[in-house]
Write a protein that binds this DNA or RNA. Structure first.
Lengths: 355, 355
DNA sequence: GTGAAAATGATAGACGTCAATCATTTCTCG
DNA sequence: CGAGAAATGATTGACGTCTATCATTTTCAC
């Protein structure tokens, strides 16, 4: 039952050095000649030594401190994610994990940069951030990494940055999937699809529309994109106008937010008007209700619950100097009315209907 | 930075007992008067003491031993799951987790019972099993639990058993979801759907068909169920016959295995024959290829990767006396051609094309 | 009151790593 | 060769729990 697991003492003995030297190698403390260091590393390989994280954490009185940097705004998805992190805090506290949720102004790279710089001077054990493609964010991540702080990007990656891992979906794939489902819903008849985005300058939205278009453009008509800037009223007005002017619309794909406005239009559709197939993103109270009421067909959801868990687990493993598991990318869930997950038992005051 | 976290010494002092008594309470070692025990428990609550798992595991030289009991047979899904566990073994070994994969004859409750009884006399730290509704399995689980061995059911639950948790999907929901997607694919036209199962006596298959029927029966025709007993040739022959005899079939929903046979029929469909909408379960090499080649439309997959991770993580938490996280049920992934996950890099010799 | 059993307390050592300190040895350069 | 810097080794104590042992105290039944 008691397996003989090699300790660092075994490594030192095997390498012919003192425990202190082996410790210096393993923990990169310096003051070790390369000759000795390579002997230690060889011994580690030969013996299969694996650092005992339990012992190390006990000796250090380890209490993980992770910072989660989220954009604040009216986006329901990030509100939802924020609430998930807050809800997890108490349980994580009991497991010696302290989460600090830091909110930065949405679409404001310098604000994100500043927050990350502050964290680089702090003694946090890891940082997870919602990325932005700004070059200053790449630099800020470099700085964190230089301070030996592990970094994970969440929901939106930072291409070119030296982050440890990305947790999120591939928006092109999401768009293509939406395209495929729209095609399926048309059997072999030709349809006319209206795409909606927050803004075409938002990379994730653009990717989704691009993906959808790849799948549909040879067999279906794609109407001009509606930019709704994630504002319900604007979305409502523009969609209503398009549906009024264009009687051939058979499907709507909303890649952005502001979906409460879209749902209101679909609610008020005249009975004589056939409801277009409707696919949108992220499960929120209004989109859940619209699914339940048959106003829309499908919600593509990136499962922030899963994303949150992957981030916390990943940061913990990085702090423990453990390899991250090779996992598949997050597969967005495809919700129809029949497979909606149970509602969470409690809702916080701050959670609003939508943004 | 150094948070003062209460230790068991603090608890003992606070309760006015010795460390040894507090330890006896926390670890249920006995020899403690109820008067003392309740004082200890009160102190734990007041101080918010949480057992230091790192310290405990270090002191015990903890090396988790988990047993995973899987049915052996020609079912591709369980082969896939088995291979996932095997592939994870090495990494887990380095983290002091030893997995033992135990294979029992499929659909053979006494064989499963015997394996579980053996484990009850073994010193394993946890057991995960693919359930069976037999009463002897309920008893075997009782026995494990009596031996203080945590039990999780996987893929198929055991109603009435005292297991710690179930990891798997709701098959009724899966069937309803398939029904909804079939309805979506028919727009508002009426269709004729052919259901396929391994056997109607298989509860998961029956649940799936039942779920689908609920959604479809008021607007669509449901043809008689084909029982294919998970045998490709039989499935192929019977589906071909049905498609030959029934020119009105517009959709096929396969709730069982043996899907290679179904795919062969769809491959050989005459050009003049419109391909029915096809939805089946579990991503396997043949179903992946069929998706890629446009022979079928959707695969509903219960993500054994996720299931495996939940099981290992759950067993570990149970062994550490930690609460399991409140997680949503596994949401089956809905794969179309466009959102297929990357292929694993290596395939083991034992993995076959299908069962 | 006595004896036995149960409850309680005290104690020691183990686990494997971290962190720090200081003595000793080795190496390099003038 | 000597001095100083770097490398190395020895040592100690800490972390919080587990495990075991045995002494002491308390409780209970007769």
């Amino acid at each position: 039952m008691k397996l003989k697991v090699p300790t660092l003492s075994d490594v030192a003995r095997h390498a012919g050095v003192s425990y202190a030297t082996a410790d210096r190698v393993v923990n990169a403390r310096g003051r070790v000649a390369e000759k000795s260091a390579s002997r230690v590393r060889a011994a580690i390989d030969e013996l299969g030594y694996v650092r005992n994280v339990d012992a190390a954490n006990l000796a250090q009185r380890r209490f993980y401190r992770f910072a989660i940097v989220l954009p604040v705004g009216s986006n329901a998805f990030f509100t939802r994610m924020r609430n998930l992190f807050l809800a997890a805090m108490e349980q994580l506290q009991a497991e010696r994990v302290a989460l600090e949720v830091i909110e930065v102004k949405a679409f404001h790279p310098s604000s994100l940069r500043a927050a990350l710089d502050r964290l680089a001077n702090d003694k946090v054990d890891g940082v997870a951030l919602v990325g932005s493609e700004d070059a200053t964010v790449v630099e800020a991540i470099e700085k964190l990494r230089k301070a030996k702080i592990p970094v994970m990007t969440l929901v939106s990656d930072v291409p070119g940055a030296d982050r440890n891992a990305y947790v999120g979906i591939d928006n092109k794939v999401a768009g293509r999937t939406a395209g495929r489902l729209i095609a399926l819903a048309h059997s072999s008849s030709r349809g006319r699809v209206v795409p909606i985005v927050g803004a075409l300058s938002a990379r994730d939205h653009a990717d989704r529309i691009s993906g959808m278009s790849e799948v549909l453009e040879s067999q279906h008509d794609i109407a001009p994109v509606i930019e709704g800037y994630d504002q319900h009223d604007l979305v409502e007005a523009r969609v209503a106008q398009v549906l009024e002017d264009d009687r051939d619309v058979t499907a709507i794909y909303s890649a952005g937010a502001g979906n409460a406005g879209l749902i209101r239009v679909l609610e008020r559709l005249p009975e004589c008007r056939r409801r277009p197939v409707a696919i949108l993103h992220e499960l929120a109270p209004h989109s859940r209700r619209a699914l339940e009421n048959g106003l829309i067909d499908i919600v593509i959801d990136q499962r922030p619950e899963d994303e949150m868990m992957r981030v916390v687990e990943g940061l913990r493993r990085l702090a423990d100097r453990r390899a991250l598991p090779v996992t598949d990318p997050i597969v967005p869930a495809i919700f129809v009315r029949e497979n909606l997950p149970p509602l969470p038992l409690a809702r916080t005051e701050r959670e609003r209907e939508d943004t």
